[in-house]
Design a binder for these strands. Structure first.
Lengths: 143, 143
DNA sequence: AATGATATGACGATCTTCGTATTATTCAAC
DNA sequence: GTTGAATAATACGAAGATCGTCATATCATT
């Protein structure tokens, strides 16, 4: 397989640079006060892994568990998460979304959807399929 | 123009989700202690805009100028940036990289290059061109 | 000169991260 | 079944980051 050229790499780098600045979720819309990045990530993880524990989040996000402890604490205090002690292991904590938490996650998802729509806007229908296919290939490649 | 399907949006969302977690620059390699995200961005901005002032950075990164003041202060203290008072406007400050700062930026650039190489790895030569083209189209689209 | 605008920094309140130490519970081995 | 190591989570505090208010120096205009 031939290697990418320096020019290709440079172009890609410049594009990503602008990309990450441009397509970033502007939180702080709506009445709720914004969540910091870690808290948002943690909230999403719980949404996708109900009944998970703090250590699962810490492992997944690769941050110290004490940091996640603080994060879940904030989320519980803000009424977005709830803790329960599962009977089968009373050391653990099972996290779950509250109704408010669910509402918040749904809001984020809608915002992401909008962002992705805007992103695909400049591409033709054929290009969209190709783009999504390549992103998938890049992300789920082993290596 | 037809709209993207829900399925397309969902696939793209899932891919980006993993993408941002996977392709993130692991700082803290090498002997130097890691820079936080803002400081890194500021350092890069100065690298690309020599003689710029703190307010330019603040405007570009869309953060309060006092935050940038703290950031440049840290960078100067660490010996990565230097301040000079331009004669033509003695209120202002002109920022520039020190040799150490240049070294640091070059290190980051090399790391980014590696990351982009890895990213393009799973794509064929034709796909690479197409991918970079679409990224460019997405990023530099007016809208 | 006087006024207003501009560039920056000082200071402090508040929040975040994360290392150390603590508590509660489970599990393994004897 | 008791003891001891391992595991899940949190309390606490130090260090650092963000950002608002205020102060200072320097233009630019009249």
């Amino acid at each position: 397989m031939t290697h990418p050229t320096d020019k290709q790499l440079a172009t890609l780098g410049a594009a990503f640079n602008t990309f990450t600045r441009r397509y970033k979720l502007a939180d702080a819309l709506g009445p709720d006060k914004p969540l910091n990045e870690l808290d948002k990530q943690a909230l999403f993880y719980v949404a996708e892994h109900p009944e998970c524990g703090p250590s699962d989040i810490a492992r997944f996000l690769a941050v110290p568990h004490t940091t996640i402890s603080s994060a879940t604490d904030r989320l519980v205090k803000r009424g977005l998460l709830k803790r329960t002690r599962p009977e089968e292991d009373r050391r653990a904590v099972a996290l779950g979304l509250t109704d408010e938490g669910r509402r918040r996650v749904d809001g984020f998802l809608a915002a992401y959807r909008q962002m992705h729509l805007r992103m695909l806007g400049p591409l033709s229908a054929a290009e969209r399929d190709a783009f999504i296919g390549m992103m998938t290939k890049i992300v789920y490649d082993e290596g």
